[in-house]
Design a protein around this nucleic acid. Structure first.
Length: 291
DNA sequence: CCTTGTGCACGTCAACCCCA
DNA sequence: TGGGGTTGACGTGCACAAGG
């Protein structure tokens, strides 16, 4: 049975510069027995040769110590000689619910992602002071493709509606809501809601939050094209895109906050485990001292 | 049942950033 | 350097719970 490492939050959003090059895929590996690492959207699968399965919650950060937290004891997986590369930071921890801190041999994961002294001051300052956008964070998380594809599709929908007019010009949308059918046998009836009806047209919104812009129909059947109306149309397009962008931004922000909360939980557990370990080491030390 | 407070999602504006 | 993307700020509407 393979061990599965599930990444809930791979990159610390507060890290100065979550370099895409230092993502989990490039920073985790095992040299012995050639385990297999696969990254998918938000999930990292770490396949190890051992016959164990572990659910792992981890926070792996490019410039900080990293934590891998498991629900089961990882001891059988991490046989002697295995190496986990956790970014370039030493002192990373694998923590289990049993409180077992796994001993790791941490090696350098390469210098390409490290902060070289020769880094240009400007770039360096940027990396230190600017918080990355949610987009970058999500890209680093690996989920950005979906979000971006959605945006792209939505905006291209709007543009293609404007340019190619896949909705016939003579289509009249008299109500504020109507239904269309799609699919076979009339399955998938969708409700269209018209919002923001203006002189330039109306935004038509249907089920799952997707929208497109329907230009107003002139008597002649052509899109009204005077300068003022063109301005209005451009404005509607801008508003539509910004509306969609704001929605996406909020979604990313929520994800970002979840990520932070997740990290807090993991770090709290790590802290607790380290305190326990320190305590037990102290006790051990005292015992040996008294002998 | 009505009012009030709270949380959430949304739309819009404006400032900033990035890239061609 | 202009256009477009991103995101903080602000206002609004809606849903829901609590209290009178």
């Amino acid at each position: 049975m393979d061990a599965i490492v599930e990444e809930k939050c791979q990159v610390d959003p507060l890290a100065p510069s979550p370099d895409p090059q230092t993502g989990i895929a490039s920073s985790v590996g095992v040299t012995n027995n050639q385990p297999h690492l696969v990254t998918a959207t938000n999930i990292v699968h770490l396949t190890l040769p051992s016959h164990t399965q572990a659910q792992v919650q981890s926070v792996i950060q490019p410039n900080q110590q990293s934590v891998i937290q498991t629900a089961t004891n990882l001891q059988p997986m991490l046989s002697k000689g295995n190496v986990i590369l956790v970014s370039s930071k030493p002192n990373s921890v694998i923590q289990t619910t049993q409180g077992n801190l796994q001993t790791l041999r941490v090696v350098e994961a390469g210098d390409s992602d490290s902060f070289s002294e020769e880094e240009s001051p400007k770039k360096r300052r940027d990396l230190l002071t600017r918080r990355p956008s949610y987009r970058k964070i999500l890209n680093d998380l690996g989920g950005g493709e979906i979000a971006e594809a959605k945006i792209e599709q939505t905006s291209s929908d709007a543009e293609s509606e404007l340019s190619s007019h896949s909705i016939p010009y003579h289509t009249v949308l008299p109500a504020t809501a109507l239904q269309i059918t799609s699919g076979e046998g009339g399955q998938g009836i969708q409700t269209l809601t018209m919002t923001n009806a203006t002189a330039g047209g109306a935004i038509v919104q249907y089920a799952q939050g997707q929208e497109f812009f329907v230009p107003v129909v002139a008597q002649s059947g052509s899109i009204s094209g005077s300068g003022g109306e063109d301005q209005a149309r451009k404005r509607e397009m801008r508003l539509l895109k910004n509306r969609e962008a704001a929605r996406e931004c909020r979604r990313k922000k929520k994800e970002y906050i979840k990520c932070l909360e997740n990290r807090v939980a993991v770090l709290e557990n790590q802290n607790k485990a380290l305190i326990d370990e320190l305590k037990s080491l102290k006790e051990l030390y005292c015992q040996q001292k008294n002998e």
